[in-house]
Amino acid sequence: MRQFASLLFLFGFAFFLSVLVGGLPFGAAPMQVGQAIVEQNIEATGAANAVTGVLLAFRGMDTLGELTILFVAATAAGMVVERRKHGVSRDSVAGFILLAGAELMFPFLLILGAYVILHGHLTPGGGFQGGAILAAAFFVPFLANPGRAFQGHAMAFVEAFAGATFILLGIFSIFREGDFMAPMFLGTGEFGQLVSAGSLPLLYLALGLKVGAELGSLVAEIAAAPGSDDPLIEEPQAAKDL
């Protein structure tokens, strides 16, 4: 009965969607705003990659909000999981080859992530994609050897600093340009160069570090959560608060 009702509902919804989608134009996007952005992007932001221009300059507030969603999701996840003492994991340590491979991959992924982030205003890629690679750099060795500690003090400070930089650059621009999150107070620079496009590379660096740290800690929270049969080790409240 339940299955039948949901199938009926789904057929109704599919019909509704097909009516909606049927009336949409395809291949003739009404680029009301998009055309203006494509035309003005280089002049306004100096970034070759128009998507970067939209993400960091024209719609910077969306990106700040999205960054914060990652942050608050990681915070809430950290609140929900129970803590397990470091080193008492029942998850087996991976074999020698995987361990060595993970250690080998670490610097490689780090460099790749940094490259993708810093060239985000010139080529495809940027803070999100590079941040995901950075996160992989940190959690691949962690997955190979789940016993080790993931988040140290240094990590917390990088995370806080990166997030704060994103907002502080925005507040700084109030004093230089009069507008919150105006990214061009450094000048657009020479088109196509690594150091160009105002504060966009800086913003992307902050974004990439923050995204990497948050995604990494989300994976770590889940990886470190005690499984169904692990004994629960309650840490004292004070230790959890720290």
Binding site: Q129, A132, L215, G227
Partner: peptide, 26 residues
């Protein structure tokens, strides 16, 4: 750009998260 993000986040990271969660819930 979207393709890179979807491959890294949607395919890679989300897959890892789900697999980890499955291992934890057995």
């Amino acid at each position: 750009d979207v393709a890179m993000a979807e491959a890294a986040v949607g395919a890679g990271l989300a897959g890892v998260l789900f697999a980890l969660a499955l291992r934890k819930t057995e």
